[in-house]
Design a protein around this nucleic acid. Structure first.
Length: 939
RNA sequence: GCCCCCGUAGCCCAACUGGCAGAGGCAGCCCCCUUAAAAGGGGUGGAGUGCCGGUUCGAAUCCGGUCGGGGGCACCA
């Protein structure tokens, strides 16, 4: 790297690397980043001013990191270091979300236990991030796969399991309180019998049906290719699995669910209290999908079809009803034969309604989600009966059609073709009548009219606008017993079980009646057993009829267990499911706070200190939570919704002090990269490509440029290790932070990194003689100009660091260093300038800053400050130069005393030669003086 | 199809609540150091803010339209 002619003490990569490993060792040995807790094993002196900064839980992938991964980590570290230097108690660490498919799939292929793979990957990951000099409290590292961690994941599961949601107070309560209500008779059983008349099994089933974790035989997303079921959130819009991209089928299976829907309103409403990007809030609102409308019952003989609609005001225009294919009434309502004169288009070729419905339903079930969405042509069959529209007594036909989804609303709709395009399309295909109930705006040329306007053809609603008509009809429906106003949500309950190996086992066993029994806390943890074969049975990815067969069910010694659960020793069967990967990441901030606590998941005093609401600082509605949470936008719905849900349950049950886990969320951008393909479309190594006149060449052949992700298969990966080797970690850190604002995605450009290194070399040279290695500085007083530059920088950099504008903070440092270099050019610089400059550099480039700080004679690390304060005296200028505009164009400049009044500035501007010439002695129409800014003369 | 974000020098990016378009870096050009070289030093030119229109004394910034790029949702009644 350094040949003879490079000065021995120049800040080269080799010098940087030796400085870096030395300081990393120092920090570790001195516990520099240990953040004290108020109580417990990590207790120490705690200042009241604290800051909890958290990166999104990384998965320790075997592929290692590329330069995009640490962007957020360096950002949080810089932010954390800045605040630590300003005296705050800063908690910053990093653990691993280590359960999951890749390690398991590797185990399936090689037979190596996923724990070994996981541990190796974690070690590799740590070695990569340690080189970056991140100021983590190493005592707080955790992995979700640690038994000491997942016992608490299981404990939290039990809290949720042993709770129910009391609608009357909109919060979770212990299940024992529900049982007590039944026992006392305060709450009626479904069939009205007294609690004591129910059998023990009936009692248990009744209570179980209220739990926040429950089993249901419901349509779930079965993915034969993965051999497991997956959550709605893990299914892509085209009906495939998020991981692996296999087809997903809706299938009725008995599965564990978490009642997240009980929290729909609070999950939406509490978003208002959070300092989060609007984009993420909007995504969560859309996902929960609250819409206001009404349930309306349409009588069919003795039965009734209940529909959900957001447009009850259009009920007079309902000309038919539609049931989802899976709707139970599809069978129940069918008469023995078609009514006379039935429209041929309506029968689907079936000889009887029952046959037609059955055939249609079979066809619908075979369609994957993808098929269903690919073709938007409306299909359906007539059920053979008519329902009565309760508002006008009209007889309207009932259909089954797959454009109505069973999982939303009641699984049935009233179709109003006049105001809904989907209904219009269907009505057109089937020759059904169309009645407009809202007067379209003049000139409207479309089909269904969905806008606002006066009601028509709607009896007592006529003339009302949509909002008023809705209110009026809902009141009428409620009065007459035909329906009621209702809120509806898209959010569905969280499918919580996976038929996999590498996850947290459920702390649940089944008794001889086949009913689930929660294990008591004292029997935690339930450790994962050793198994012969880590794979679930997987199937042909397209085999919708296959059934899950989890690996744990084959661990015979483990699955059968003899326990005393209060009724003497009995044999039980363990639950063979494991929790989804989202379980461990739904509460890890609570464990960072108190990672070694063996008595509790987190000591309340520690939890309150680090995560509790602080209304004095953050306003009255402060929900508490991590002070700054940085990660990618990809977790906007899944992780962040689950985490908020668990926090709320724990909050309701009194285990945590605030209702939200993450007070402030920040999404960092991505580092992207160019990739190049040759004429065959094969990727060529990006670093070997050269550019000429806007065209790109590899070995003389022209190649095509693409822009996107960094990845092995694209041959464009650049790793942090490589950057550390070539430039040093500080240079790499500085470059990443100076590429642009944290939230913006940008392309990686290795050739630009040199700029960051040159800056650090120049700054180093201002402290250390490159040839002799001697430290150089003086105690002389800097000139006024330099002092002003210094204090302006200090003033600006505080604001930049606090607002995470690390790119402009870096630019200010370069600017100041350039100034100092110019003024002192080779002579020793005043210590009083060097020291604050070094301190200001420290959050971005901690190693070189420590080294220079020590070189200037300091024996203590600068990690805890001091951080320089700007002296007001040097921030005020004595004179101000005002640009003088005439009609908005700059024509001249005048310099006046900084404390000059507006009149003085105005007089000076008008007196200026060029301005006077332009005004020719005439009085201008207007003169605008913006104090400290400019003067604009309007002629 | 609906909704959101972003377009400033060859490239990455600055510009506080509307107020002199440039802080910083890369590349370019010039000079210096060097036997030579550069991942050394010093200096320097370069855009009127995608496009059209509006509001304003004044617009990169606000408003409307349009083009380009990125993202989210998508038979949710």
């Amino acid at each position: 790297m350094s040949d003879e002619s490079t000065p021995a003490h120049r800040y080269t990569a080799a010098v940087a690397n030796s400085i870096e490993s030395r300081w990393q060792r120092y920090w570790e040995e001195h516990g520099t980043f240990h953040a004290p807790n108020p109580t417990g094993p990590l207790a120490g002196d705690v200042p009241p001013d604290k800051l909890f900064v958290q990166d999104m839980f990384p998965y320790p992938s075997g592929a290692g990191l590329h330069v995009g991964h640490p962007l957020g980590f360096i950002g949080t570290d810089t932010f954390a270091r800045y605040h630590r230097m300003n005296g705050r108690n800063v908690l910053h660490t990093m653990g691993f979300d280590a359960f999951g498919l890749p390690a398991e799939q590797y185990a399936v292929q090689t037979g190596q236990h996923p724990r070994i793979t996981t541990e190796q990957n974690i070690a590799r990951y740590l070695s990569q991030i340690r080189r970056l000099g991140l100021g983590h409290d190493e005592r707080r590292r955790i992995a979700t796969t640690d038994l000491s961690y997942y016992r608490w994941t299981q404990w939290i599961f039990l809290q949720i399991y042993n709770a129910w949601f009391d609608e009357r107070v909109s919060k979770a309560r212990p299940i024992a309180e529900l049982e007590a209500e039944y026992e006392r008779g305060d709450r009626a059983t479904p069939d009205g019998r007294a609690w004591s008349e129910l059998s023990r099994i009936e009692q248990r089933k009744l209570v179980d049906s209220h739990r926040l974790v429950y089993q249901s035989e419901a349509p779930v997303n079965w993915c034969p290719g993965l051999g497991t079921v997956v959550a709605n959130e893990e299914v892509t819009p085209d009906g495939r699995s998020d991981r692996g991209n296999f087809p997903v089928f809706r299938k009725n299976l008995r599965q564990w669910m978490m009642r997240i829907t009980a929290y729909s309103d609070r999950l939406i409403d509490d978003l208002d209290m959070l300092d989060w990007p609007e984009k993420v809030k909007t995504m969560q609102r859309n996902w929960i999908g609250r819409s206001a409308g009404a349930h309306i019952r349409f009588p069919v003989g003795d039965a009734a079809v209940e529909v959900f609609t957001t447009r009850p005001d259009t009920v007079f225009g309902a000309t038919y009803l539609v049931l989802a294919p899976e709707h139970p009434l599809g069978d129940a309502l069918t008469p023995a034969a078609w009514p006379a004169g039935v429209d041929e288009r309506w029968t689907g070729g079936g000889a009887t309604p029952a046959e037609a419905v059955a055939a249609y339903r079979r066809a619908a079930a075979q369609k994957s989600e993808l098929d269903r969405q690919e073709s938007r042509d409306k299909t359906g069959v007539f059920v053979g009966v008519h329902a009565v529209n309760p508002v006008n007594g009209a007889e309207i036909p009932v259909f089954v059609a797959d454009y109505v989804l069973m999982g939303y609303g009641t699984g049935a709709i009233m179709a109003v073709p006049g105001q809904d395009q989907r209904d219009w399309d269907f009505a057109t295909v089937f020759g059904l009548p169309i009645v407009r109930t809202v007067q379209p705006t003049a000139g409207f040329s479309g089909e269904a009219f969905t806008g606002d306007g006066p009601a028509i053809n709607s009896a007592f609603l006529d003339g009302m606008d949509v909002a008023e008509a809705k209110k009026t009809i809902i009141a009428w429906l409620e009065q007459n017993g035909h329906g009621e106003g209702r809120l509806q949500y898209k959010l569905r309950d969280w499918l919580f079980a996976r038929q996999r190996y590498w996850g947290e086992p459920f702390p649940i066993v089944y008794d001889s009646d086949g009913l689930p029994v929660a294990l008591p806390e004292s029997m935690l943890p339930v450790a994962l057993p050793e198994v012969e074969d880590y794979s679930p049975r997987t199937f042909d990815p397209d085999d919708a009829d296959s059934e899950p067969s989890p690996p744990l069910s084959r661990a015979a010694d483990w699955i059968e267990v003899e326990l005393d659960l209060g009724e003497g020793r009995k044999t039980y069967r363990r639950d063979a499911n494991v929790m989804p990967q989202w379980a461990g990441s739904s509460w890890y901030q609570l464990r960072y706070v108190d990672p070694t606590n063996e008595e509790r998941f987190s000591e309340p005093e520690n939890e309150r200190y680090w995560l509790g609401p602080r209304p004095q600082e953050h306003g009255e509605s402060d929900p508490g939570g991590v002070d700054l949470y940085i990660g990618g936008i990809e977790h906007a719905v899944l992780h962040l919704l689950y985490s908020r849900f668990w926090q709320k349950v724990l909050y309701d049950l009194g285990h945590v002090s605030g209702p939200e886990p993450y007070r402030r969320l920040f999404n960092q951008g991505y580092i992207q990269a160019y990739a190049y393909t040759d004429s065959r479309g094969v990727y060529v190594p990006a670093e070997e490509v050269t550019e000429r006149d806007g065209r790109f060449f590899h070995n003389g052949q022209e190649v095509r440029q693409e822009y996107g992700k960094m990845g092995k298969s694209l041959k464009n990966v650049v790793t942090p290790d490589e950057m550390c080797d070539r430039y040093g970690a500080d240079t790499f850190r500085f470059y990443e932070m100076s590429m642009g604002p944290m939230e913006v995605s940008r392309p990686w450009a290795t050739k630009d990194v040199i700029g960051a290194q040159r800056f650090l070399q120049r700054m180093w040279r201002n402290v250390v003689d490159e040839t002799t290695g001697e430290v150089r500085f003086t105690d002389e007083v800097p000139d006024d100009d330099t002092l002003r530059a210094l204090h302006r920088t200090i003033d600006g950099i505080h604001a930049d660091y606090a607002a995470m504008r690390f790119n402009t903070a870096g630019a200010k440092l370069i600017e100041l260093n350039n100034h100092v270099t110019k003024v002192y050019g080779g002579r020793p610089c005043p210590r009083s300038v060097l020291e604050p400059m070094i301190l200001m550099l420290a959050p971005l480039c901690p190693h070189i800053a420590e080294e220079m700080w020590a070189a200037l004679g300091h024996t203590e690390s600068l990690a805890h400050g001091p951080f320089p304060r700007a002296d007001e005296r040097y921030l005020v200028e004595e004179t101000v130069e005002y640009p003088v505009q005439v009609n908005g164009k700059v024509r001249a400049r005048v310099t006046v005393a900084a404390d000059a009044g507006q009149d003085e500035v105005r007089a000076a501007a008008l007196a200026e030669e060029k301005i006077a010439a332009l005004t020719e002695g005439m009085e201008p129409r207007k003169v605008i003086v913006v104090p400290g800014r400019l003067v604009n003369v309007v002629l």
